[in-house]
Structure formats: structure tokens, C-alpha cells
Design a protein around this nucleic acid. Structure first.
Ligand SMILES: [Mg+2]
Length: 242
DNA sequence: GCGACAG
DNA sequence: ATCTTGTCGC
């Protein structure tokens, strides 16, 4: 039997109004005005380090699913590359049969959030921001997985997807670090970002309590030698291991 | 009606 | 996402 999406669509439209797009800051600094009034993301300022970066992913293998959360401590320096140190990891296992929704493009959050919330209950630390395997506001109704999770947990979140859900964009140079706006319905909702030279790009969009510049900066600071930022890569591996 | 379509 | 080994290319 087909899933009735009309109720879900109404909920998404209501949630969309609650999403806040602003520079990424720590909870205590939220709402304060930039002392320098500059457009430089606060996370790039060494003075604001360290940051606790969480990443989440869900893996389904046969009759078992695993919701994984990893937490890294990010330190930004003025005279050397940023450092990432693994702080904590948790995995919540459950029966695949307990997953209430099938996968339908545009409604991924309803399928993945319940298991992810279970995993968050096992987490003892409180991250400053959550990286999600999926879109943020780059969504037909502006509420992708990252946005929905951020709103639910009342925490900053960033969407980092391996594929596009919606929107259009122009030619993207092959060099690592290049990016172009991702436009949907006349609005720039994120960017298509080249994390590795000559490699398929990733799709970055703000989830909640962050903006596009801060989202790009966060992902860049978390990149290692792979296409996917290290925390998300680790969460993905963890959610698929034994 | 047709094409697009996160994980 | 999952099902799956070796193989092609930089
Ligand atoms: Mg995933």
C-alpha cells in the first residue's frame, strides 16, 4: 500500500518556518552580534576553537539497522592545518522491521530520524553542530534530513549529500575547493562543492542554526584525503560494520 | 503526462 | 540504501 504523503508534506511546510539560517556559533554565543561585523564564519577564527563536531548515518543490513554517531573535536589554528580528534562513538542497533517509513525521495528524514534519536540518547557529550548524510534546506519544501534533525534536537546542523535531490547549478571547475551555488525555486539553498580534484562533487546545504558560508567552512575543515568529510565517513563505516 | 528523484 | 569481485584508470 502506498504511503500517504499529504500529512507529511503539511508537517514539513510547518517545520520549514522554524528553520533559522545564521552564522554557526556555539550555543552560548547564539544571537550575539559579530564584534567585527565581518562575514567570516566564526568557526574559521582560531579564538573560537575547539568545536565538537558530530556526524550521523544509518546503515541497514538484512534484519538489523545501525544508527551511528561519531563526535570529533575540531581545532582551528592560524599557523597550521586544523586538527580532528575522535572523542566519542555510539551505535544503536535495532530491527529493520521497526523502521516505520520506506525510502521515498523528499521524505528521508521520517525514515532515519527515529533511529538516529535513539542513538543520540546513548551519546554522553553535547556536540556544537551535527553533520548529516543528506540534504539540509536543499529540499523541495526546505526541510531535508539535516534540517529536520537539527530542529528536533534544537542544534545546529549541516547537510552533506552525495547526490542532488533538487535544484540547479552551473559548471563546476575540476579543482578541489571550487564550488557553485545550488539554486532551487529562485533561491540559493546550498552549494555543489568539489572536495577532491577531478572527483564527483558533494552537495552542501545548511540544516538549522547555520548558513551557507559556515556550512562550507565546516565541511572544508573536516576534509581529509577522501571525498566525504572525515566525521561522516567514519559514521558511515561504523553504521555498516559488525 | 514527463522527468527528477537525498538514503 | 543493499546485493557483491574483480578490474580499469589516474
Ligand atoms: Mg546514509
Amino acid at each position: 500500500m502506498r504511503l500517504r504523503t499529504d500529512v507529511l508534506i503539511r508537517l514539513q511546510k510547518k517545520l520549514a518556518k522554524k528553520i533559522l539560517i545564521c552564522p554557526l556559533t556555539k550555543e552560548g554565543e547564539r544571537g550575539k552580534i559579530n564584534s567585527t561585523s565581518s562575514s567570516v564564519p566564526p568557526i574559521l577564527n582560531p579564538k573560537n576553537s575547539p568545536w565538537l563536531i558530530a556526524a550521523t548515518d544509518l546503515g541497514i543490513k538484512g534484519d538489523t539497522f545501525k544508527a551511528a554517531i561519531v563526535v570529533y573535536e575540531l581545532k582551528v589554528f592560524s599557523d597550521r592545518p586544523p586538527s580532528l580528534e575522535l572523542i566519542d562513538e555510539v551505535v544503536y542497533r535495532g530491527n529493520t522491521s521497526s523502521i516505520r517509513f520506506p525510502y521515498i525521495p523528499g521524505f528521508l528524514s521520517f525514515r532515519e530520524i527515529p533511529p538516529l534519536l535513539k542513538a543520540f540518547k546513548k551519546l554522553s557529550v553535547s556536540p556544537d553542530v551535527i553533520l548529516c548524510d543528506g540534504q539540509g534546506i536543499a529540499h523541495p519544501r526546505g526541510v531535508g534530513l539535516a534540517s529536520h534533525l537539527g530542529l528536533t534536537l534544537r542544534k545546529p546542523s549541516v547537510g552533506c549529500a552525495k547526490n542532488k535531490l533538487c535544484g540547479n547549478y552551473g559548471l563546476l571547475p575540476p579543482q578541489k575547493g571550487s564550488w557553485v551555488p545550488l539554486v532551487y525555486d529562485g533561491l540559493t539553498v546550498g552549494v555543489v562543492y568539489r572536495s577532491r580534484t577531478g572527483v564527483k562533487p558533494i552537495y552542501i546545504s545548511p540544516g538549522h542554526l547555520t548558513d551557507i558560508p559556515s556550512s562550507i567552512a565546516l565541511v572544508e575543515l573536516c576534509l581529509g584525503r577522501f571525498r566525504i568529510p572525515e566525521p561522516l565517513r567514519r559514521a558511515h563505516i561504523l553504521s555498516n560494520s559488525l
